[in-house]
């Protein structure tokens, strides 16, 4: 087992997997935090923006589509991560493991 570990560590595909996955997971984490914080800042510093009606003859405010949009955004980000991880990353992982376990 010890040998498989050092073999994997030296595998350039492993380096590729780690750096790609790190980039994706930290980017997406940053995205959700930034968007969420932006929403909170909007509430704190410009609540009237969220309270503005989307058109003169409707009581619906911008806050409604933005809020619901945020929920969808969180879901879509998890979808993007799962899609890439279950496809590209798992293929890379499998290639690395197949070689070690031969």
């Amino acid at each position: 087992m010890k040998n498989s570990y050092s073999q994997i560590l030296d595998d350039p595909r492993f380096q590729e997997l780690v750096s790609k996955r790190n980039r994706l997971s930290w980017t997406l984490s940053a995205l959700i935090l930034i968007v969420y914080l932006a929403f909170i800042f909007l509430i704190a510093f410009a609540p009237q923006v969220l309270g503005t009606r989307i058109s003169a003859d409707s009581v619906i405010t911008w806050g409604i589509p933005i809020g619901v949009g945020l929920i969808l955004f969180a879901f879509i980000l998890t979808g993007i991560y799962v899609r890439r991880a279950n496809g590209e990353f798992d293929r890379l992982t499998k290639a690395i493991l197949d070689e070690v376990q031969q």
């Binding site: 994706l24 997971s25 997406l28 984490s29 969420y36 809020g67 619901v68 991560y81």
Partner: peptide, 17 residues
């Protein structure tokens, strides 16, 4: 709705990290 969003945003982070 604001509070619902607060509860939800932790989950993507759990997935990514």
């Amino acid at each position: 709705l604001i509070y619902s969003i607060g509860f939800l945003v932790g989950w993507p982070i759990i997935l990514f990290l």
